[in-house]
Write a protein that binds this DNA or RNA. Structure first.
Lengths: 188, 188
DNA sequence: TCGATGTGATTGAATGACCAACCAAGATTG
DNA sequence: CAATCTTGGTTGGTCATTCAATCACATCGA
């Protein structure tokens, strides 16, 4: 099974990248961790950039979300809390690649697609909430940029500062988001 | 004037780092850009890490904010819009260093201090708003984490996607923040 | 059934380049 | 004449990528 080797390399690459960081990770290390020859890595992945992008996709493909409406919005925030706690490794890889993307066209294109997709999910949820309340959905795009950005910012803080309370920040974000769709309390 | 040379190196380092990115920037390039010998850079800055941290401080020291109360909160959001547009270079450096900080203790410590200080400013503003309205200031910390994180996330999106509308996202964030301090509209 | 042949997978060494940090000696300054 | 600043070359190492050679193995013809 040829794709077996491919996955072995991807897993090994993730292990080394998580432990050492992009800068300090060499193809040689990855090959050693995977127990294969150095050249084989370049046989399966044209370049180091393509490899790390494949790694990002490999570790993130299981994190897809599918939620609906206002209840879905709250569930998504709870989901975020969970991922911040559990997927430290993939989050760290993500944040690192964002920094590299700024000056590497290949990684830049990959990360751009990633961001668009994730923010798109947030926007979909926002639109559903507006639809439920029969409100004008125009602000959904801006809200998606702010909310998705906030989640990323909170992830970064919790990665840099171990004692940062991500739960508290996500709760505050959730409260802010929801009070925005109750612009004026119509009842009482 | 000895600090003249130091500043010349800092400015040159910022120029090259903005143009090429951390990974692709060598001490040699910085020395050439500054028009000095390679060894001089290491004379003034013990290591590449210490140099880039000094560069970050050098380019950010002029960006201090000093605002008060709810009007100050709005002014701070407008300020953010401005900085996203104008200080692309320093923002890019910042984001890059965050990625590197995850696996470099020296840069990690510097970035951590930076984040704490900036988020602290946001928290101060939040506390002032709560004080003005004589409300419980407890949520200020969580809000600061969410709001500062959101600004960082929006900066990142606008760096990665040139067509991203940062103004729209900041406006949405401002609306969300303020509606959070009007939990129930007491009048009417 | 058995050998030939083609193909993708795999190896490990070689290439060519680059870099941070160090150092010894020269220049400048007070 | 120190002390500080500055030079530019050296050191010892690392790296991504390339490449020719080998291997496993399946397909096919006789």
């Amino acid at each position: 099974m040829p794709s077996d080797t491919r996955e072995k390399i991807l897993q090994a690459a993730f292990d080394v990248l998580s432990r050492e960081g992009y800068e300090n990770t060499s193809i040689k290390q990855i090959a050693e961790q995977a127990g294969v020859a150095q050249g084989l890595v370049h046989y399966h992945f044209k370049s180091k950039q393509r490899l790390v992008l494949a790694v990002l996709q490999f570790v993130c493909q299981k994190l897809e979300i599918g939620v609906e409406g206002e209840a879905g919005a709250m569930a998504a925030f709870e989901d975020s809390k969970q991922k911040i706690k559990e997927d430290r490794g993939s989050n760290a890889l993500y944040v690192q690649l964002i920094g590299i993307a700024l000056h590497d066209p290949e990684i830049g294109a990959g990360i751009r697609d990633f961001i668009r997709e994730q923010r798109g999910n947030v926007e979909d949820i926002a639109r559903q909430v507006f639809a439920e309340r029969e409100m004008d959905p125009t602000p959904a795009r801006g809200i998606a940029g702010a909310v998705w950005g906030a989640v990323l910012g909170i992830i970064i803080q919790s990665l840099i500062e171990p004692e940062f309370s991500a739960d508290e920040a996500i709760d505050a974000l959730a409260a802010m988001s929801l009070s925005a769709v109750y612009p004026i309390n119509q009842g009482a």
